[in-house]
Design a protein around this nucleic acid. Structure first.
Length: 469
RNA sequence: GGCGGGGUAGCCAAGUGGUAAGGCACGGCUCUGCAAAAGCUGUAUGCGUCGGUUCGAUUCCGACCCUCGCCUCCA
């Protein structure tokens, strides 16, 4: 049984109740990365937000059918392959793998299907042919095919741009003289020398698909002509998604997407990421600075609502690290108190309230920050009770189950206790002996040695506790 | 020029027509050999500025200031 949820639809510019075509199924298409390089944290901000969406949908009882393509042919991938002297496929596959690894680092659930664009060229050609037949596209003399914007009066409906201003815009490419209209965009690019051995045969000659057509083709191929949610970074709104709508609806004659989900960009130190500023960080860069994927995920989730700019700073990463440590500390406490092995969650009003508030926050356009606030309030309250020993084992179980439910959405994961190295263990034993002998000078020295090895010692009523720093 | 997003404590960030969640940082206390962790507690009479509507506005309206983004292939 699926529960109602509201999402901001950037087409209508309003938060609307989600009304899937065939509940409980929700079809979700997300524009994936162009795999010519490692993804940066800005890319992953988008995919973490999408992951929050899919986990939330699942949490509320929907069956998510999620497709995300990998763009493995375009100017950048072709250039990269040539510069490295390797076949296109070889060049892109390494970055496809890297993306999946980084997604795993961030505990992002992999979509049900992740097709490569180049595996579906015939489907794209077919779609382009349909558009040509319907008069919505035309082949130029040289063998490229363009979409005819004049044939699609709705053009601009998503980005709310009007063609008059488009023409006045500064960045219109004036070089493509073959086009009938300045706003017309390419569906099929004729082969050029720079493409090397990359190219496919088509009714219009050798070439490759334009960027926009792949998403239309793959979305329709896997999810049908009309889908529930289509998402991606905010920059894709125009022209990419606008063009997708034009292509798809001109071909099918009906609605392509019911709700548009756009994730706002991430900034670094208040500025747009760019190579020249040296602030384009990959997930790997963040790990290299000593942070974990969990901490990055927390920072990405809590930094701002998905619809607003998120300002990434190293200070923010430090804050995230401490916040995650607070959660972890609470989790250790709960687990060490051995919750009862029960299948049925017992009644604990506190736990029920927490889940209700948590759900309410998510239901309203994925308010992750508010949801986290609910969690932290729960942590504070239960920490006090747990330290006082006021809960019965079955109540501790109820607390434990709250985390299970909440983390199914947040995806922060549980602390994984790494095994204590023998050297650290040995130092810890010496320290325990020193403390017993009340040789606190030796004890403090040993603690420093243990810390130098990357571990923290904590003295508890039950003895020392070791955790990886 | 067109369209849109922001301006809330030292930093980050929710939120609502009735008197401000949460995280981080900081101070005090409890606990501790000392720490750590945790708890308790203190930090915005205030939510860009000026007007207006209202019994009452940070929340609605108007003007203005500042800032960010998009306007043809960048998540």
């Amino acid at each position: 049984m699926s529960e109602p949820i509201s999402l901001y639809n950037s087409m209508s510019r309003a938060v609307e109740p989600l009304r899937p075509l065939a509940p409980p199924r929700v079809s979700l298409y997300v524009c994936g990365p162009t795999i010519y390089n490692y993804g940066h944290i800005g890319n992953f901000r988008t995919y973490v937000a999408v992951d929050l969406l899919r986990r939330t949908l699942t949490h509320f009882g929907y069956e998510v059918d999620h497709v995300m393509q990998f763009t493995d042919v375009d100017d950048k991938t072709i250039r990269g392959a040539r510069e490295n002297g390797v076949p296109l496929k070889q060049f892109t596959s390494q970055f496809r793998e890297a993306f999946l690894e980084d997604a795993k680092t961030l505990n992002i659930e992999i979509p049900e299907r992740t097709p490569n664009a180049t595996d579906h060229i015939p489907r794209m050609v077919e779609l382009i042919a349909t558009l040509v037949d319907k008069g919505a596209a035309y082949a130029s003399d040289d063998g490229s095919v363009y979409f005819r914007i004049a044939a699609f009066p709705k053009y601009g409906c998503l980005s709310h741009l009007d063609l008059e201003n488009l023409v006045a815009g500064a960045r219109v490419n004036q070089d493509e003289y073959e086009k009938e209209g300045v706003g017309d965009f390419v569906l099929w690019k004729k082969w050029t020398v720079a493409d090397g051995d990359v190219g496919w045969d088509s009714p219009w000659g050798k070439g490759r698909p334009g960027w926009h057509i792949e998403c239309s083709a793959l979305s329709m191929e896997y999810l049908g002509e009309e889908i529930d949610i289509h998402g991606g970074g905010t920059d894709l709104r125009f022209p990419h998604h606008e063009n997708e709508i034009a292509q798809s609806e001109a071909a099918t004659g009906h609605t392509f997407v019911r709700s548009w989900f756009h994730v706002e960009h991430l900034l670094v130190d208040g500025q747009k990421m760019s190579k020249s500023l040296g602030n384009m960080y990959t997930v790997r860069d963040v790990l290299a600075r000593g942070y974990t994927g969990r901490e990055l995920r927390y920072a990405l989730l809590s930094g701002a609502h998905y619809s607003k700019n998120l300002n990434f700073t190293w200070q923010g990463m430090d804050d995230a690290k401490t916040a995650v440590a607070r959660i972890d500390e609470w989790r250790r406490l709960v687990r060490n108190l051995s919750p009862a092995a029960l299948d049925e969650p017992p009644l604990l009003q506190l736990a029920a309230d927490c889940l209700n508030d948590f759900n309410a926050a998510l239901r309203h356009d994925l308010n992750a920050n508010k949801a986290l606030g609910v969690l932290f309030n729960f942590i504070s309250t239960t920490n006090a009770g747990l330290h006082r020993g006021q809960y019965l084992p079955r109540e501790i179980k109820a607390i434990d189950l709250v985390w299970t439910a909440v983390d199914a959405v947040l995806g922060l994961g549980d602390v994984t206790e790494s095994s204590v190295p023998a050297e650290v263990q040995s130092l810890a034993e010496q320290r325990a002996a020193a403390r017993k002998a009340k040789d606190f000078a030796a004890s403090d020295t040993l603690r420093k040695q243990i810390e130098a090895l990357g571990w923290k010692v904590k003295d508890t009523p039950k003895g020392q506790e070791l955790t990886a720093a």
